[in-house]
């Protein structure tokens, strides 16, 4: 296939697209607050409400809500980033045709992809900061290492923003988003968000451990509970690899689709 080569000096132009996305956000904080509503509801109703019935998770000596909180933080970073590069990009690509106007500028398709993923990462970080603040206010922070959740949220956002972008290049129409839901919802429910891996039968565990959200949760929850170990490099490596492969697929497919 033919690609239009892009010299490195245009890379910084991806910044212009980030500027565009934040020009829209600057006008109101609603999107940011919106992204926080659902996780807060889950934290209150399942973390606190059902938490009263759960007591403590076996092997974990903190209240259930403090166990669930970091996992919900990871899912928040995931959803914020993913939504921006799936729904958001799909609308800009197919409905608003925003990129059609950008293509004739010096920005390359790669710049567009990098710009979108970076904006999504910034958003993921901002919602994570918001959620972490609320967790702290609610007394759900038990270790100072929870601050590692912020760099972690950038990494999670990277992986899922790139993943969202790659998936979006395969979508034809809005109903196709339901198939994404078919993957995202079970992952949300089953990737140890609400209970530990030990609940699952031995045979099922590798399946759960293959999920990107599982690693995202590990990366936030372990430090949040004060457990630091070299094992954390596994989710770091996993998410980096996942994001980079997705980024490669996304850029390739977007270039092919847009530079016809």
């Amino acid at each position: 296939m033919t690609t239009v080569a892009v010299p490195a000096w245009t890379r910084r132009r991806a910044l212009a697209l980030i500027e565009r996305n934040f020009m829209i956000y600057r006008r109101s904080v609603t999107p940011l607050l919106n992204a926080l509503v659902e996780p807060i509801l889950y934290l209150l109703s399942i973390g606190v409400g059902v938490g009263m019935l759960v007591g403590t998770v076996p092997g974990v000596d903190v209240p259930y809500a403090a166990y669930v909180g970091p996992a919900i933080l990871a899912t928040t970073a995931m959803n914020t980033a993913f939504n921006q590069t799936s729904f958001g990009v799909f609308i800009r690509m197919r409905v608003e045709k925003t990129y059609e106007a950008i293509l004739p500028t010096p920005l390359s398709v790669t710049d567009i992809a990098v710009g979108e993923v970076t904006s999504a990462m910034i958003n993921g970080l901002l919602t994570s900061i918001g959620f972490l603040t609320l967790m702290a206010v609610g007394g759900l922070v038990t270790s100072a290492w929870v601050l590692l959740a912020l760099p972690a949220s950038l990494l999670i956002s990277y992986a899922f923003a790139a993943g969202g972008l790659a998936v979006t290049t395969y979508l034809r129409d809005f109903p196709d988003f339901q198939y994404i839901q078919l993957f995202m919802l079970p992952m949300y429910l089953f990737a140890t968000t609400f209970y530990p891996l030990s609940v699952y039968p031995e045979a099922v565990r590798p399946l759960i451990q293959a999920l990107p959200l599982y690693h995202s949760i590990e990366l936030v929850r372990e430090p949040a509970l004060g457990h630091l170990s070299w094992d954390l490099l596994i989710p770091v490596a996993y998410l980096l690899a996942f994001g980079s492969v997705a980024m490669y697929v996304a850029t390739r497919r977007m270039t092919r689709a847009m530079l016809r």
Partner: peptide, 11 residues
């Protein structure tokens, strides 16, 4: 399944 059975196990 996720909440009823999974979380239910803990409850």
């Amino acid at each position: 399944i996720g909440i009823g059975a999974g979380l239910g196990a803990l409850v």
